[in-house]
Amino acid sequence: MFETIEYVTENNVAWIRLNRPDKFNAFTEQMNLEITKALKEAEKDGEVRCLVITGNGKAFCSGEDLAGVKQDTDHAEILRKRYNPMVEKLANFEKPVIAAVNGVAAGAGMSLALACDFRILSEKASFIEAFINVGLVPDSGNLFYLPRLVGHAKALELTVMGEKVSAEEAKDLGLATKVIALDQWEEEVSAFAQNLAQKPTKAIGLIKRYLRKSWDADLSEMLENEAYAQRTAGQTVDHAEGVQAFLEKRKPVFKGR
């Protein structure tokens, strides 16, 4: 069904594996559209309570496949048609999303990782704001997410200098939740995803929605937003289960509803 990615679901976790390993998983039009389509499926699938995006082979994603860029290419239209819907879909995806960055994440590949909720990095992974090195500016949400993660000054430095950021550096900058040793990679990524998939999914979705709103809201609006969010969360099965488990002094079993 998909050609440039693999999409599988198991144990409440959906996996999108970028699958052009010989091209370091560079984006093509087909890959952008397939990722967006897979995101829609994962969103609709009630069994899915966590999503992992990772790369097959050595790289996570090397960004746009420059082989397809010609002199008369309208870069803005490429973004509007292919990348922006993918980034918007991720931004509105109300389940936890992990970028399991297995190798280099360059250019729009880095943007993809930034648009996820968690970035867990292999010790071999790296980020490169490669756009400047071909005379372009970061896109696909990169200029939105990066300053919010690392601060304005550091965002400017990374995007203008275009130098490689190692996994450890990325962690120090706040770009990574954790760095994982190579021999434990598969196992730890799975465990991280499984843990998220057992949490109250609806509440996580609401946290994502309203944290994002906080970026352009004042305190009064956020207090009101929190009231809305809590009203919604307060009606979930998982909240009832959480309270019940607390009273019975046992571990809650959340259903994601």
Binding site: R209, Y228, A229, R231, T232, Q235
Partner: peptide, 9 residues
């Protein structure tokens, strides 16, 4: 404009 879950309420 309100959260989708709470429109009717």
């Amino acid at each position: 404009v309100v959260a989708p879950e709470l429109v009717f309420e």
